[in-house]
C-alpha cells in the first residue's frame, strides 16, 4: 500500500476546477481512485454527477484518457476499449501499458447499467468497475434508486402521511457481483479512505475483472452539512449497514470489524432524509430497519468465517 506522502508526489489525474458541489464525496472518490492507479489510465464514466461535473465543454477535469458514451453502457464501452488495446498490443502498434477503470453512480450501476456490467464482467475483460454509491439519482434531483435505503425520503418517495419514505430495502449489488465469480470484489467507503486506496491497488493488480462498490455520501441528497460528508460515509460502516469486506476468488474476508457496533440511529439521525423515522408513529420502521441490518451483518460474519455461534442461535 502506497503511503499518503508517496501519493502526494503524484500528479492528480482528476484535476481541480471540476464543478461538483463543495464537499462532494464522489469527487473525493474519483480523485483517490485515480491517484491509486500509477500507470496510464483510461477512465470511462456513465452518465451521472461525476461525468457531468468533470466534462463541461470546453473544460475537462481528466488528465488521462476519458470516454463517455451513455447512461447504461459504461462497462460495455470500457470493455470495447480494452479489447482494442489488446489487439493493438498484439500487433505491436502500442508499447505503453494501460489500466482501465469504468466509473458509474448507483443509478448507472444498480439499475440502468446492470446488464452491460454483467456482460462485461462475464466476458472477463481486464478492467475495474467502480461504483460510487450515493444512494439515489442525485444528479437529476434526488429520485429513488434501487440502492436507496429503507425509509429514505426522496423526491419520488416523499415522506408523506400514508407512505413514509421508501418501502423497500436496498439491493445488494456487491453480492450480485460476487456471484459473477470475479477475480476481486470489494465493498469500501470513502470514510475509510486508506482501506479504499488499498482495495483499488489490489483490484488493479487482480488477474481479471474486478468490482468495487464505494459508499460516497451526497450531502444534498442526504440532507447533511457538506463538511460532514466523510463522517456519514464512515458512520455507515460503523453501524454495519455498509460493512467493509473483500472477496477474492470466492473467499470472503472482512476488511474491518467495527470496535463497537453502533446502533443504526447514529447514522440515521442528522440526515434530513430520515427525519420522519424518528416520529413516534414510525418507530416500527426503525425497528424493522435495524433488524434487517443485524441479519445481514450476521450473515456476512458467517460468510467470513466469524461469529459462527451467533448464527447458529439465529438459526434456531
Amino acid at each position: 500500500m502506497t503511503s499518503v506522502k508517496e501519493l502526494s508526489k503524484r500528479k492528480d489525474i482528476f484535476c481541480a476546477g471540476h464543478r461538483a458541489c463543495s464537499g462532494c464525496a464522489p469527487a473525493i472518490t474519483m480523485r483517490q481512485v485515480t491517484l491509486a492507479a500509477d500507470t496510464n489510465l483510461v477512465a470511462g464514466l456513465s452518465t451521472g454527477c461525476m461525468e457531468v461535473v468533470s466534462s463541461i465543454y470546453p473544460y475537462t477535469a481528466w488528465r488521462s484518457s476519458f470516454i463517455h458514451n451513455a447512461f447504461e453502457n459504461v462497462a460495455a464501452t470500457i470493455s470495447g476499449v480494452e479489447a482494442a488495446y489488446r489487439v493493438l498490443k498484439r500487433k505491436g502498434k502500442l508499447s505503453a501499458n494501460y489500466k482501465f477503470i469504468a466509473f458509474g453512480g448507483d443509478g448507472g450501476t444498480y439499475d440502468i447499467g446492470l446488464q452491460s456490467l454483467s456482460g462485461a464482467m462475464e466476458r472477463g475483460h481486464q478492467m475495474l468497475y467502480l461504483c460510487y454509491d450515493n444512494q439515489g439519482y442525485m444528479n437529476t434531483g434526488i429520485q429513488r434508486s434501487s440502492s436507496t435505503p429503507f425509509g429514505a425520503a426522496t423526491s419520488t418517495t416523499p415522506a408523506g402521511v400514508k407512505i413514509p419514505g421508501k418501502q423497500q430495502f436496498q439491493k445488494d449489488l456487491t453480492e450480485i457481483m460476487v456471484a459473477h465469480n470475479l477475480a476481486y470484489v470489494a465493498q469500501a467507503s470513502i470514510g475509510y479512505y486508506r482501506d479504499l486506496n488499498k482495495k483499488v491497488e489490489k483490484a488493479l493488480a487482480a488477474p481479471g475483472p474486478s468490482f468495487i462498490n464505494v459508499l460516497s455520501c451526497c450531502h444534498r441528497g442526504w440532507r447533511i452539512d457538506p463538511a460532514d460528508s466523510l463522517k456519514y460515509s464512515k458512520l455507515g460502516v460503523d453501524t454495519c449497514l455498509w460493512p467493509l469486506y473483500e472477496v477474492e476468488d470466492g473467499v470472503y474476508k472482512l476488511s474491518m470489524k467495527p470496535r463497537e457496533k453502533l446502533p443504526l440511529e447514529e447514522w440515521l439521525k442528522g440526515q434530513g432524509r430520515f427525519n420522519h423515522l424518528f416520529k413516534p408513529e414510525n418507530a416500527d420502521m426503525l425497528k424493522k430497519f435495524q433488524e434487517y441490518v443485524d441479519k445481514k451483518w450476521e450473515r456476512l460474519l458467517w460468510k467470513c468465517g466469524e461469529g459462527k455461534e451467533k448464527t447458529k442461535e439465529a438459526g434456531k
Binding site: C15, G17, Y59, A61, R63
Partner: peptide, 9 residues
C-alpha cells in the same frame, strides 16, 4: 487534458 484547471471555482 485537465483544462478545467483554468476554471475558477
Amino acid at each position: 487534458g485537465g483544462t478545467a484547471f483554468d476554471y475558477e471555482t
